[in-house]
Design a protein around this nucleic acid. Structure first.
Length: 283
DNA sequence: CACTTGACCTGTCCGC
DNA sequence: TGCGGACAGGTCAAGT
């Protein structure tokens, strides 16, 4: 999504903004008038699951999409009326789950849609972004050059008494791993998600690292795991889920064991998908 | 401090 | 067809 937005937004100037749900954009109106209206987009960055739209006013739009957030860009002449190929995906915007609309001076618009209202967007002075509690506590980027398998093990063992799935989902341990990539990488490494971190072998840490890096890179290449709720910056869905081996594949054959069916269980309070043959829980 | 659970919301699906 | 409950890609605060 960052890559898509950074092809579309830099250079555009904000002409106006509309808001629906206060928690989706908690800034005061005065901030909006002073630091958003008239601002030009400089760049689009990302840290963990947070998008950062940097503005010419030295303010940044900080965005977390949470479970159901979407950012959809529409150029001035885009029409999504009946007959448009993308109509089945979203249709005309704004719609009833549009929380924020940014209108640019060239007539294009960026819509922040969020059915469940968990996501948010806020304006912050550039210097305050790293001071957010989330950024102070968040772990390292798994695709950074210095994130080796040893570095990953070093982070995970901070949660040695909990299960590996909970540790992977903990954003203060490693940044950006969510439910899909946790399940996919654990299947790849043949590790049961309820395995305690302290019981993982060196080989398992190494394998989990390889598999996590693999699924993250593959997903970025495929445009992400968007299906029902997320779409990319131009309103298209990513295709990673069609490559997923276990996620939302309960009852289907394990790709490694055609005779074994994927099971769904609950680990760390989340729906969790495993192959019961390759991912065994030993004690 | 480490770890787990409920809350924040809306919509959909499934069993009765 | 209606109704209650479980569930959905993620954090947070409050609990033990």
């Amino acid at each position: 999504m960052r890559a898509g937005l950074s092809r579309l937004l830099p250079g555009l100037a904000v002409r106006a903004a509309d808001f629906d749900w206060p928690k989706s954009f908690p800034n005061a109106e005065a901030d909006v008038q002073q630091f958003l209206i008239g601002a030009k987009v400089i760049a689009v960055e990302r840290r963990a699951k947070v998008l950062l739209i940097e503005l010419s006013t030295k303010y940044t739009l900080v965005i977390h999409l949470k479970m159901t957030g979407q950012l959809v860009f529409r150029s001035a002449k885009a029409s999504f009326g009946a007959g448009h190929p993308n109509r089945s995906l979203i249709g005309e915007l704004p719609d009833k789950s549009t929380r924020v609309t940014l209108m640019f001076t060239d007539g294009s618009r960026l819509f922040f849609n969020d059915q469940r209202k968990f996501g948010w967007m806020r304006l912050l002075p550039n210097a305050e972004v790293p001071q957010l509690d989330f950024f102070k506590k968040v772990g390292p980027e798994p695709l950074a050059a210095d994130f080796t398998w040893q570095a990953m093990r070093g982070r995970l063992v901070r949660r040695s008494n909990t299960n590996i799935k909970a540790a992977l989902l903990d954003q203060t341990v490693i940044a950006g791993v969510g439910n899909i990539y946790a399940d996919e990488s654990l299947w790849g490494a043949k590790i049961h998600p309820a395995t305690l971190v302290k019981n993982l072998s060196t080989r398992q840490f190494h394998s989990l690292y390889d598999e996590l890096v693999y699924v993250l890179k593959l997903s970025i290449e495929k445009g992400g795991s968007t299906d029902k709720n997320y779409v990319d910056a131009e309103g298209r869905h990513g295709s990673y889920l069609s490559f997923a081996r276990v996620f939302r594949r309960e009852g289907q054959a394990c790709p490694r064991h055609p005779g074994t069916l994927i099971q769904k269980l609950r680990v760390a309070g989340r729906g969790t998908h495993i192959c019961p043959r390759c991912q065994r829980l030993k004690h």
